[in-house]
């Protein structure tokens, strides 16, 4: 079902429909993540992908326009590139471990230690939170800084200067 949604997004030309479909896609992805036991990630994906991203995309469409131009040439070259990449990746998957096996490499490294010691060491039963904030605190600090930087970048790009605002005081509209 996600695959169908993705292909439709590729084919559709009305950007409004594309945005609505990408929201649907996020919800489907969140459902899949719950099935895969990643409840924290699913909660984030539902809130971020389906909520905030949609508002932002719709805001952009409101500021620009919502119809895509007809492409001048057929997209054979990108299609070929995509096929080649897909073929290489399919070849690559043959070397990967099978789905759901408890003895694959990824489960042998640090994860068992987190699961066994995490609660005793941090007093937090949700291991995802414990790893996020404590064991990998540096990662999270850097990541918060990335968000901070992105926020500053957007402020620089989109904020009107003061003189600009006094020029056109009437065109500020209510949010929509």
């Amino acid at each position: 079902m996600m695959a169908i949604t993705a292909v439709t997004i590729a084919r559709l030309r009305n950007l409004f429909a594309v945005v609505v479909l990408s929201t649907l896609y996020s919800f489907l992805m969140a459902t899949v993540l719950v099935v895969l036991d990643a409840v924290d990630v699913a909660l984030t994906e539902a809130a971020v992908g389906a909520g905030i991203s949609t508002v932002l995309l719709l805001g952009t469409l409101y500021l620009t326009r919502s119809e895509e131009a007809v492409p001048v040439h057929r997209a054979w070259l990108p299609f070929g590139v995509a096929l080649v990449v897909g073929g290489l990746l399919a070849f690559g998957t043959l070397g990967l471990p099978e789905f759901g096996r408890p003895d694959s490499d990824i489960h042998q490294h640090v994860a068992p230690r987190y699961l066994e010691q995490g609660k005793a060491e941090t007093g937090v039963p949700n291991i995802v939170t414990a790893v996020l904030a404590s064991y990998r605190g540096f990662d999270t600090l850097g990541e918060t800084t990335v968000i901070f930087t992105a926020g500053v970048g957007i402020i620089l790009l989109l904020r009107r200067s003061r003189s600009d605002e006094s020029d056109r005081p009437t065109d500020r509209r209510d949010g929509s």
């Binding site: 957007i154 904020r159 509209r173 929509s176």
Partner: peptide, 18 residues
């Protein structure tokens, strides 16, 4: 931080008239 950045983004997008 996350709440602040998300809100700021929204304010900037919405505050910009067509």
């Amino acid at each position: 931080t996350v709440a602040g950045v998300m809100l700021m983004i929204f304010y900037l997008f919405a505050g910009r008239g067509r």
